[in-house]
Design a protein around this nucleic acid. Sequence first.
DNA 1: ACCTGAACACCGTTCAAGT
DNA 2: ACCTGAACACCGTTCAAGT
Lengths: 186, 186
Amino acid sequence: MPTPARTSLGEIVVAGRAIVETDGLEGLTMQKVAAAVGVRSPSLYKHVASRGLLVKLIVEDVVRDLGRTLDAVFTGDDPNNDMLTLARAFRDFAHRQPETYRLVFAPVPDEWRPAPEVLASASGAVLKTAAALAGPERALEAARLITAWAHGFLTMELAGAFRLGGDIDEAFTYGVKRLTDAVTRS
Amino acid sequence: MPTPARTSLGEIVVAGRAIVETDGLEGLTMQKVAAAVGVRSPSLYKHVASRGLLVKLIVEDVVRDLGRTLDAVFTGDDPNNDMLTLARAFRDFAHRQPETYRLVFAPVPDEWRPAPEVLASASGAVLKTAAALAGPERALEAARLITAWAHGFLTMELAGAFRLGGDIDEAFTYGVKRLTDAVTRS
DNA sequence: ACCTGAACACCGTTCAAGT
DNA sequence: ACCTGAACACCGTTCAAGT
């Protein structure tokens, strides 16, 4: 007689993501996840093959969320302003959930990397804005330049590397403007 | 009767760093470190208080190494060329030891963060070059802009985020030049 | 078809006992 | 003063047994 499922993969991913946000990646244990969804840890393996795969699914969930967040603030009207708005939304997103944000670019084995199409789903607005600034042929390199800078800035900020002096908000805005100018075709 | 020490903190840090480089941070176990220095894992606690503290000491070792590497290529003659040379040395360093490099900006609890003076010891050459390009008052923000970009670029590269198309070496060189121009006082 | 307790091979860390 | 085996409280994962 089949037992009805007491949880689901979706529920497990949501619970796991909340645990990572609260306790960090190393705080994500199968037992905590199981307790959060109301089963014992061995039962999780009926829904997800391993902790590593669960982490991958959590990261893909975060990336999709980031994509929706960026798409929501993109206007397509003024590329200079869009880039600043996108960068600030990016930073807000990372500040709101630093533990899951940093997983997006964490080096993991290939099998646990977010799928390329999921990553692509988060880069549309930045690419369109970069194309408007730098021209279609240079859109990719411009988008990468700004994304790399923003991610590096956030990583260092979250790691406490900017501890010594200076207004961090101002430094961020300064950076976006400098980089927007730098990639704009003249 | 005192037993002579069979290992030392220095030896433990060197062994631990090698293990992180080979097996990643999650592969760093006290048992592996103990085996590498020829004792049993409980004995390590006579030399280092915890695995977390060992990680901190490993990171500080890596940062000092990075500082020496950058100082070695810095000339002080031509700031444009120095910045390119420093950026490439930075990238080479990260490529040679990706697992330990990424620990440098990993968000960890305060007590396990590398000491500020150790971090400062690695930033001298970049700061001097940034000052030559941007002027003394803007040196800090210029150095941070380029460091954040370089770190973000490397993180994304090591995470496999640049998988789709383009020559990565060329993209890196392009980035350095664009940023050098962007921070140069006119 | 999913859930469970028991078990296995690990972890980091503590501690009493050795030298 | 340092080293050790044994122990404790955890991990992820497997598996036979329940429903």
